[in-house]
Amino acid sequence: MKFSQAFRIFVISGILALIGNFIGFKINPIDALPGMVILLILVVAGYAVSRVSPIKLPSIAYISALAIIASIPGVPGADLVVKYVNNVQFLALCTPILSYAGISIGKDMDSFKKQGAKIVVVTLLALTGTYVGSAIIAHLVLKLTGAI
């Protein structure tokens, strides 16, 4: 995908999230706009770095790293980043993702129907296993190290 195409999708996706943020969380888009622009800058910068960087890592690794650095207390502007991004709700960013996922889901349906219920049950057990397994270890280690 060309960079300009990706940029266009970032902007559209950001607008969708702003609208959802308004409808679902009653946050005025004007108030949420600075936070969304900050997120957009982080996304575009991380995406751009991943395309030119000699270290081949997925874009989300770079985006995440930039966002962490931009929000560390003491880094210039970090308090503003945190303050404005707080006006963009976590859940409002999730809805556009699953809207696109919903639109594309049909293409996986046919191959899936051939496999039957067994594979569904086993997959859901696997998902249960990773969640519960991680929760048990995390809880025990947090207790043992006195973090909670």
Binding site: A6, S13, I63, L66, I68, V75, A78, Y100, G106, K107
Partner: peptide
């Protein structure tokens, strides 16, 4: 079918906003 193919890569692109938002929660 075409619409489904078009929408597919947009999932990964819109996930990046969520990644950025979550990153700004890590710093503080």
């Amino acid at each position: 079918r075409d619409d489904m193919e078009i929408a597919s890569p947009y999932i990964g692109l819109s996930v990046m906003f969520l990644t950025a938002k979550m990153g700004t929660n890590i710093g503080p």
